[in-house]
Amino acid sequence: MMMYALAAVLLGVGLYGLLVKRHLLKKVLGLLIVEHAVNLFLIQLGYIDGGIAPIRTAGEEAAAFVGNAVDPLPQVLVLTSIVIGLGLAMLMVALTLRIYQRYGSLDADRMSELKG
């Protein structure tokens, strides 16, 4: 339960950064924090307190294994999502850099003042 609450807090922090902050880099960081919150939430779904890694060794009883092993699927999902997130993060940072080079400012409000 603790960890779900942590994910919710992270989500709140990320959304705050994304929606309230005017600095574009802070918006990007907010979005990355939202991503981590979602990943943390997903990984909880398959977690069992005191569970074992979902790798079945020879001679291990099937019923006990299924009962104790954590669900590997959310881990796979999170892995995929982290990789996609990494690609997105690189693109967003590159874009931020390009915007700064071009307009000399990263202020989102000033960006929208200029006719866009």
Binding site: L31, V34, L88, L95, Y103, L114
Partner: peptide
């Protein structure tokens, strides 16, 4: 285009999350 890209990307990523 860079500015427009930022306006396009941030909501899109949020919706994906």
């Amino acid at each position: 285009r860079p500015r427009a890209a930022a306006r396009y990307l941030l909501p899109a990523v949020l919706s994906s999350m």
